[in-house]
Design a protein around this nucleic acid. Structure first.
Lengths: 193, 193
DNA sequence: AAAAAGCGTTGATAAATATCAACGCTTTTG
DNA sequence: CAAAAGCGTTGATATTTATCAACGCTTTTT
C-alpha cells in the first residue's frame, strides 16, 4: 500500500530516495480505512493528521449558521487530505473532512511530517511543491470565482477536472463552485442544447 | 533599506541569521523604486522577480474579455509581490502587478531566491511559512466567497484588514471582494444605519 | 486657472442566482 | 420487499447583484 505514496514522492523529488529514507517514510505512515461518511477530521478539533489517499474519495466542508454545507475541497486518489490552517496554527478547525466513498488512506501525524521534512530532503522538496501547488490552485479558483459567471466557472471546472464530475454528485460540485444544485442543473441543461 | 527585510526574516526564522547569511541575502536583493501606476509584472510575461515591499502599496489583477479588471491581490508594506504560478511553472503570467502608490521594493530574481532557499536554512523556513500562509489566506478567502453574502464578506474583510480599507479606494476593495463598486457603496450605506 | 480624471453615490432597470415546493427515479436501509 | 433517503429536475417566485447613466466633489494634470 505504501508503494503508491513512494511513487508519488519519487515523481516529485529531484534526487532518488535512499532505502533508509524510504524506511523513514514508510514508518511514519499508517494505513487506515474509512467507510463512507466516517470523519477524518471534525470541526472544532485540531488537525493532527495528514492523509494520503490511496483509494477512494473525500470531501472537506464548512457548515454555516443555517446548517448548510459548503464544500471547500474535494479529494480523490493521490490527494492529501488535511486542514493545513489548523495543522500549522494548532487551532481548532472550522472544517469537517469525511469519506465520500469507502477510502484507503496512509495517515501520518503532523509532527512526524515535520520530522520527515527535516530528515529527508526529497520529502521537504515534495511538501514545498505541494504547498506551492495548493496555493496556485486556490488562487486560480479564487480568480475564477470573482471574475467569472457560474456558467463559465462550471465549464472551466468540468474541463480541468473531468474525474471530479464523474465521481461526485452534482450537488457537491455545485456547492464546490459556490452555487445551488438547482442553478447547476439549469446551467447544464442550457449547455447541453 | 534592507534592514526591514532582515527584520522580517529574523522574526520568522527559528535560529538567528549568521552575518554570512545576512550578506548572501542582502546581495540577492536590489532596491527598486516604482512610481504610481508603473508595472512590476505585465500579463504575458514570465514572472522572474519577487519583490518585498518596504514602503508603498501595489495590486495584482487580471483583465477579462470585456476589459474589466479583477483585483486578485492587494499588497502593502512587508508583503511579497509576485505571481507564484508564473514563477514556479515558468509560464506567462495572466496577471498584472503594478504600483498603486509610489513604492520602494527590494527585488530578487526568482533564481536567486531558489539559491537562498538552499543555502540559508532560515530563508528556506521563511519561504515555507510564506507558502503555507498564502495558501491559508487564499483558502479562507475562497471559503468566505462561496459561503457568505457580499455584505458579510465585506464586514469580515473590514474587520480583519482595516489597513487595506484605509489605504485603497473602495472600487478596488469591491473588485477584490468580487462585487461592483455600486454594490459595495450600497452595502456600506446599509451598514452605517 | 481651467480641464480632465478619479472617486463615491444614487436611481432605474435588467440579469443572475437563490429559495421553496413538488415530482419521478434510483439506491440504500431496515 | 417495503420504506426511506438521496439525487437531479422543473416551475414559480423572491432576492441579490450587475449594469447603465448621471451627478457632485476632489485630486491631478495641463
Amino acid at each position: 500500500m505504501h508503494k503508491n505514496l513512494l511513487a508519488y514522492i519519487r515523481e516529485r523529488a529531484t534526487s532518488p530516495l535512499t532505502s533508509d529514507e524510504e524506511a523513514l517514510i514508510v514508518a511514519a505512515f499508517q494505513p487506515k480505512k474509512l467507510r463512507k461518511k466516517q470523519y477524518f477530521l471534525e470541526e472544532g478539533n485540531v488537525c493532527k493528521y495528514v492523509g494520503f489517499i490511496v483509494k477512494g474519495a473525500m470531501r472537506q466542508y464548512s457548515v454555516d449558521d443555517k446548517g448548510a454545507e459548503h464544500i471547500v475541497q474535494l479529494y480523490i486518489e493521490n490527494y492529501w487530505a488535511s486542514d493545513r490552517e489548523s495543522a500549522v496554527t494548532l487551532t481548532p478547525s472550522s472544517y469537517n473532512i469525511d469519506a465520500w466513498e469507502n477510502t484507503e488512506l496512509l495517515v501520518a501525524r503532523v509532527t512526524d511530517m515535520l520530522d520527515l521534512i527535516e530528515k529527508v530532503p526529497s520529502f521537504g522538496q515534495m511538501t514545498r511543491l505541494m504547498d506551492q501547488r495548493s496555493f496556485i490552485v486556490s488562487q486560480r479558483r479564487l480568480n475564477s470565482t470573482i471574475s467569472n459567471t457560474a456558467e463559465k466557472r462550471y465549464e472551466e471546472f468540468a474541463d480541468n477536472h473531468p474525474q471530479f464530475i464523474q465521481r461526485f454528485p452534482q450537488h457537491l460540485i455545485a456547492s464546490f463552485l459556490g452555487i445551488t444544485k438547482e442553478t447547476l442543473s439549469r446551467i447544464r441543461k442550457q449547455a447541453s442544447k
